[in-house]
Design a protein around this nucleic acid. Structure first.
Lengths: 281, 281
DNA sequence: TCCGGTTGTCCATTATAATGTACATTTGCT
DNA sequence: AGCAAATGTACATTATAATGGACAACCGGA
């Protein structure tokens, strides 16, 4: 089987729009590399997702640091395919219908959604806290679904928002299948800088990852705010990899008071989900 | 303002995977055109959506009639971007997470979903029939959401399935903003061939389109099966264009017996949705 | 076992896509 | 109004992406 040799090697995710802007030249004498259309295209799409609002092609070009002419051409191509749509005034564009349809097809195939919703429902009912279903998007952490608890306070991250992996409890679980080196290559260095300004030592992070993998859980006082405690447990696929997490965000006193109960509820829900997120046929 | 001149002209949708396969040469002496990577990429994605199951790159190449080497390269690029994912055994690939996230972002921006769900709920409650929310996907008709009625019988089309526009009641409404010529250019000629094998005269179709636009409704005995009557009404956006339809699929006797009632329920729901499917900010 | 069909890999060739640049047009300020 | 900045368009250049093929590995029957 040749998958491992070639397919595997290509699976490496490049940090995309993090450090590899089209700098004219890194070393003098080396001509600047041309970006590939497809990569640029998805860079544009991701950028629009982050912005959450329609933008002009020119604006996009400037902000992602890509040549204007290239962006205009790509935007037109994407419009033709209904991957982008004219939205708002002034020729602003945003994500298009095609993406909605493709996303729906993905969801149907790996339909964790339904079960996921039920799991969050259950957790929220049993704990009255805010429950989330999280995954990796490239080298970031992302909240896929959320069920607000009885007293919803300001949550660190909204659904669909990309957040550095080290900032989150779930992050410890989501990279557990990687080797130390892979983890270091995978997470952009600047993501170890916490919102407080402090730097988290990568070794400490990795130690937490290993610990979390053994216990099948990770909890800590949130790094992002100063008043919540976060609980995360892994959702495991058929190949025993952590493909997602269920997590709970609770006020600190509350979280500590119900520590064992909350964890057991999470684990029960995760157990029901685990093994499911696989292909239908 | 330059939007109209250039952006407008580019908005034309090419019939994509319908008649423009990479034929080696149309006229002898004209070199075969190379397909653009981006177009091929979305051709692959659309193909996977239709198949609804993971496929091998080679298989994809053969079926969409694209060079193998090209497909392999694109598939690898898409895997790198998590637009495709390895799924199933043997290096089969399917739509990836990235698409799910992008689709979710689209949905959040134009969130007809919530209101749409409510509308379908209401229709299903009032009529006990199967209700659908439909749109155009390129030059095809597609069911976006569906709420099965009290006695769900075999529905013509599943959610997410592409169907020729002329086969559907909604199709009459969805192309109403186009000129006669635009309609003819837009709909692939072979789509006027009905499932029965008969051909629908394009002029008749256009006449029905115009009639439907005036009345703000279209109903007929289904072309796809022999026992249902279909009702469709337009959902109008801020620019007074039909961007979607609400429709009802009922057993024929039943549909005729409640004709006025069903239509009024549909129109009430569509009225509440109309104007909504616009950008948030 | 052998053999045809399928699948994945590799590479040279050349059509063309991504880019830089210059120009045109609009917008927002003063 | 008048100017600067922002935005859209057009085009030539060249790095490279899409392609066709040749090869190797694998599979499923006779």
């Amino acid at each position: 089987m040749s998958i491992d040799s070639t397919w595997g090697s290509q699976k490496k995710i490049d940090g995309s729009k993090d450090g590899d802007k089209p700098l004219s030249t890194i070393e003098p004498g080396i001509t600047a590399k041309r970006a590939r259309g497809l990569d640029r295209a998805f860079e544009i799409l991701d950028f629009l997702r982050e912005q959450k609002s329609p933008m002009r092609p020119n604006e996009i070009a400037v902000q992602i640091g890509a040549p204007r002419s290239s962006v205009y051409e790509l935007v037109n191509l994407l419009l033709r395919n209904e991957v982008l749509e004219l939205a708002g005034a002034d020729g602003r564009v945003f994500l298009g219908r095609k993406l909605f349809f493709l996303g729906a097809a993905y969801e149907e195939q790996f339909d964790f959604t339904r079960e996921c919703e039920a799991a969050l429902e259950m957790i929220a009912r049993e704990t009255r806290e805010t429950a989330q279903f999280c995954m990796l998007d490239g080298n970031k952490y992302i909240v896929v679904r959320m069920k607000e608890g009885a007293r919803p306070f300001r949550i660190s991250s909204d659904v669909g928002q990309s957040v550095p992996i080290p900032w989150t409890a779930s992050g410890r679980l989501l990279v557990a299948h990687m080797s130390d080196q892979e983890i270091l290559d995978f997470i952009p260095p600047q993501d170890f800088k916490l919102p407080s300004g402090e730097w988290l030592a990568p070794e400490s992070f990795i130690a937490e990852v290993r610990g979390a993998a053994v216990k099948g859980e990770f909890t800590f006082d949130s790094i992002v705010d100063s008043f919540t405690h976060c609980f995360a447990v892994p959702v495991i696929d058929a190949e025993r990899r952590c493909v997602a997490t269920l997590c709970l965000v609770a006020p600190r006193e509350d979280g500590l008071a119900n520590y064992r109960h909350y964890l057991s509820v999470l684990k029960k829900a995760a157990g029901e989900l685990s093994g499911k997120p696989a292909v239908h046929d």
